[in-house]
Amino acid sequence: MFTITAFAILVALGIALARAFAGPTVFDRILAVNSVGTKTVLLIAVLGFLTDRPEFLDIAIVYALINFIGVVAVLKYVKYGDVAHPGEDGSAG
């Protein structure tokens, strides 16, 4: 049961990676990498249940957090050409 789900997620990861490589615009790539991230979270959770290791779920939580931060950071980099940019109204000091 878990193995079938894990294989299905692996197939989905492959397709999402293919979109990441083929994506014409940079935003397709960001979208694909974000999708790969959430699929990896699911894969870790399913593998944690497959091999009876409940501590995998901690890894999945951390991975979900970092995936979100990473996507937002890349988006800011793409938009402003610099992650440390103060933003439109200079509020993000």
Partner: peptide, 29 residues
């Protein structure tokens, strides 16, 4: 539930591959 979720994940990934434009790909993602 697991197999239905896995099916949705694969359908979403396939949709992200097939759809023509970035904005349409936001939906399956």
């Amino acid at each position: 539930l697991l197999l239905a979720g896995a099916a949705f994940v694969v359908i979403g990934a396939f949709g992200m591959w097939r759809l023509p434009d970035f904005y349409t790909r936001l939906h399956p993602a």
